[in-house]
Amino acid sequence: MGKLLLLMLEGTFTSLKIFFLTLLFSLPLGLIVAKGRMSKFRVVSSIVNGYIMIMRGTPLILQLIFVYFAPYYIFGASTDRFTAVIIAFVINYAAYFAEIYRGGIQSIPQGQIEASKVLGLSKFHTFTHIVMPQVVKTILPSMGNEVITLVKDTALAQTIGVAELFRVAQNAAARQFSTTPIFIAGLFYFIMNGVVSKSFDLIEKRLDYYK
């Protein structure tokens, strides 16, 4: 039992690595994508729109397989499997985050932007000091949803051979002919997501700055 938990902690560590690396890259990338989607240049906005449609319109499991295997058939070279997992997760989640950002940004009344202009604020300054502080607040609940999904989606990494928590649990289940490891894994995911929702609650409280 002790050995099993140790193995599962190792798997959890891999899952967490995928989780944090994905957030690290996809959160900023999502903002860039959102900006591209709202661009006045038709070419930019339609390319970005196409990208979002593909990312949201195809299963993540398929994107994983594509990112890992396709480069070999196209360029004759392949990436390391963990890198492939991170790339697939980042480009997938960036698309979802982008749409959440866009919803938040577009909810800011145009009048505020005009007022900032009248007050002599630069476009950049308006975005960072007037728009974003409000956006972050409004998008937090939807972000929480997406981040919780990400915790559970890490289980897909096993598709291309990365031994994360769920793969470890399934292997142990097959070895011991018992369902217990799978349920323990369930408990692990539950705890991880407990931490995620608690953190989002805390951040929401912290960001109570307009009251």
Binding site: F69, Y72, S78, R81, T159, I160, G161
Partner: peptide, 10 residues
């Protein structure tokens, strides 16, 4: 999948 992985040198 394992054999595809073999083909691409994974």
């Amino acid at each position: 999948t394992a054999l595809m992985d073999l083909e691409i040198g994974g």
